[in-house]
């Protein structure tokens, strides 16, 4: 079934405050689309992880938020894009325990477990794009 985009907005991720804003915006949208509280929390948490990656590792970028529908389901698609150094080994970056910022290394892999669809494209020297989708 074809994916229909009902609503779209883009937000900058250029500071720590923007990460907080991104969480709040996603919370509002998720609430409007009709996500249950648990699923809202999962999506907001995934957003927090990915927005932080965009800011800390990607040197800033933007988040595109879309309300989507594929005929029977509605959901949110979120795209995080940066033009930073990129990730040399994406497979390894998705493993738990992989960490560059001295964190717990749960960022990418953890975020993946919190959503229904997850895709990542990264090119060294060009930047990284992560797209997640969660259905209601």
């Amino acid at each position: 079934m074809e994916l229909k985009v009902l609503k779209r907005s883009t937000f900058p991720i250029r500071s720590e405050e923007d990460i907080v804003k991104a969480r709040q915006i996603v919370r509002n949208w998720a609430n409007e689309v009709g996500f249950k509280l648990v699923d809202q929390t999962k999506l907001v948490t995934a957003t927090s992880e990915l927005a932080r990656n965009t800011f800390v590792h990607g040197g800033g970028g933007e988040m595109m938020l879309e309300q989507v529908e594929d005929g029977t389901r509605s959901g949110l698609r979120i795209t995080f894009q940066d033009h930073g150094p990129g990730i040399p080994d994406v497979t390894r970056a998705l493993q738990d325990g992989y960490s560059t910022a001295g964190g717990l290394g749960l960022g990418l892999g953890g975020a993946k477990r919190l959503v229904h669809e997850f895709s990542i494209q990264s090119e060294v020297g060009k930047g990284t794009v992560v797209i997640i989708v969660k259905w209601v």
Partner: peptide
């Protein structure tokens, strides 16, 4: 909901 999410996150 926070606890559930944290467990899922690892």
């Amino acid at each position: 909901e926070v606890a559930i999410t944290m467990v899922e996150l690892g």
